[in-house]
Write a protein that binds this DNA or RNA. Structure first.
Lengths: 140, 140
DNA sequence: CTGCATCCCTATTGATACTG
DNA sequence: CAGTATCAATAGGGATGCAG
């Protein structure tokens, strides 16, 4: 793993000196977090569950656009990382409740800051994009 | 100014009331930002360029692990979104310098907050992961 | 109700080779 | 030096059907 960060406040507060060892960053927890939250549904689920616990189909209906497959996979991923808790109630029919763990809840404020940035600078980004006609991926 | 909480539209500050229209979030700027920064190299480049301007091959060597293709594509994407500036010096041989735009610089603090979270909770995440043996998705 | 299995399509990423 | 072009491999994501 990357070096031992013993309570280092902010890895970005001070600028990175030199050639980033790549392994010191790409493999470091920061990249990990961005990937976990950067996929299509994780962030949305964390935010949703930040409000209150949800049942499986409740989430499925709430998001409306996510497939069962991805809902399950994303929830499992979040659960694996200790951000979401899955609780099964042996009722008939069975019901499963998903909620944020304490760790998951601590992720809300940082997420909020970035979300805040996005909202505040949305216009600038769109403006910049419209200025670059063909620059956008020529995929498809 | 764009300090932390300016009583602004922090989309997360207040909980989402009901069934998220999906389009209200998946298509909203927040999702956009997370995807841009959530890919494999964007964040690293922004952070790197946050320190000082870099030349193309300088970045290539600094990251060591990124392919020319991805370096170029990622830089183009960031440029399209107005986060990075590309400046060509008609020297011989030619040199190109990449740097953060003012907009790009405003992204640093929010990034820092999330990076900070990642560092602080790295242990908890790893612990949670090791507790879930086969939970991790296994393709094919 | 909750969710796994399967098939399939597309987007992303990389390795490699080549050019202005 | 600073890229572009091409091809191959993989991961993300969705539709559908079946099972506990």
């Amino acid at each position: 793993m990357s070096g031992t960060n013993t309570g280092v406040p902010s890895v970005l507060a001070h600028e990175l000196p030199h050639p980033v060892p790549a392994g010191e960053f790409a493999a470091c927890p920061v990249g990990d977090v961005f990937r976990r939250v950067g996929d299509r549904w994780s962030m949305l689920l964390v935010i949703l569950l930040g409000g209150r616990p949800y049942r499986y189909n409740e989430l499925h209906r709430a998001i409306e656009g996510i497939s069962q497959r991805m809902l399950t996979r994303t929830l499992r991923g979040l659960e694996t990382d200790g951000l979401v808790r899955r609780e099964v109630f042996p009722t008939v029919p069975p019901s499963v409740e998903y909620s944020l763990t304490p760790l998951g809840r601590t992720l809300l404020p940082p997420l909020s800051v970035l979300a805040d940035w996005a909202v505040q600078h949305e216009a600038e980004i769109n403006e910049a994009r419209s200025r670059h006609p063909g620059a956008r991926e020529r995929g498809r």
